[in-house]
């Protein structure tokens, strides 16, 4: 099995975990979790230098998960890559559970920040990146934001700042699933052409299909290997709730719990892809 096929099977297995967890927990952000899960799987597998056995190592790369509502994807990816056991997720959605519906930094190894209010991660990431430069650390700082999240002015303050300080260890990853909560981003507060905007703000920019592992691989490696003083942006063109036929691109799956029947059909569909 080639690397990309293996990664795809992993991310579809994680979709099963996410869908089941949201069903059992009585609700969660399916849409944003399914649009970012492929990129998260790719990053933890191929790019990030973070040792799950030593997750506080000062020289680690950082993944700042700013679009906190999609935490189901983060929770299950961290679990899959050995940061903690599945027991951490068993009580999700129950009173007294370890994890909330948005990530909290002290709840488990690998969760760098508490997020949920949008637009906070880029500034925090820029601060970490600047500190790394001052300390001569070679860590790379990846900040994952949603396209709707870029409505926040603070995101653009951080973009200006990263550019001004020439933080070439700062990677802004935009999960451009083209939907906010209630409608398409273009109908609310459109951001396109986001690549041109970021270029004009002084970023090296690459754009790719965020569900295609070969494209992800080529794009991330290309931008990481650029010899440039500029901060970097990777725009992932994704589809909200991508992975199951009846959730893909459907607004209501922004936040929802599947019915028992939807869970069954959904898991069967995901299994077909995993077993193909």
């Amino acid at each position: 099995m080639d690397k990309y096929n293996k990664l795809k099977k992993t991310s579809y297995k994680l979709r099963k975990d996410i869908f089941t967890s949201i069903y059992k927990g009585g609700g969660g952000h399916v849409g944003g979790s399914f649009s970012i899960i492929d990129a998260l799987t790719y990053l933890y597998s191929e790019i990030l230098n973070i040792d799950p056995k030593n997750p506080e190592d000062i020289n680690r790369d950082r993944l700042i998960f700013s679009k906190g509502h999609s935490c189901q994807a983060l929770y299950w990816v961290l679990c899959h890559f050995g940061f903690y056991s599945k027991s951490y997720l068993e009580d999700y959605g129950k009173d007294g559970a370890r994890f909330a519906g948005h990530p909290e930094f002290e709840k488990a190894p690998g969760i760098e920040i508490s997020s949920g209010s949008l637009g906070h991660g880029p500034s925090i990431g820029a601060g970490i990146a600047h500190a790394c430069v001052l300390n001569n650390q070679e860590s790379k700082i990846f900040v994952i934001v949603g396209d709707g999240e870029t409505n926040e002015g603070s995101v653009w303050e951080a973009i200006l700042c990263a550019s001004q300080l020439k933080l070439n260890n700062f990677y802004l990853v935009i999960d451009n699933n083209q939907f906010e909560s209630l409608d398409k981003t273009s109908n609310i507060l459109g951001i396109e052409p986001i690549d041109e905007k970021l270029k004009s703000f002084g970023f090296d920019v690459i754009r790719c299909n965020g569900h295609d592992f070969e494209e992800l691989d080529l794009s991330f490696k290309k931008i990481i290997n650029l010899d440039s003083e500029k901060p970097k942006a990777i725009i992932l063109d994704t589809i909200k709730a991508h992975g199951i036929s009846f959730t893909t691109g459907i607004t209501k799956w922004h936040y929802r719990s599947p019915t028992e029947k939807e869970l069954k059909i959904g898991l069967e569909e995901l299994d077909k892809i995993i077993n193909a």
Partner: peptide, 14 residues
């Protein structure tokens, strides 16, 4: 807003 988040990030790295 950026100034505060940035300072938080710097403090996360020592």
């Amino acid at each position: 807003s950026n100034m505060i988040g940035f300072s938080s990030g710097m403090s996360m790295n020592g």
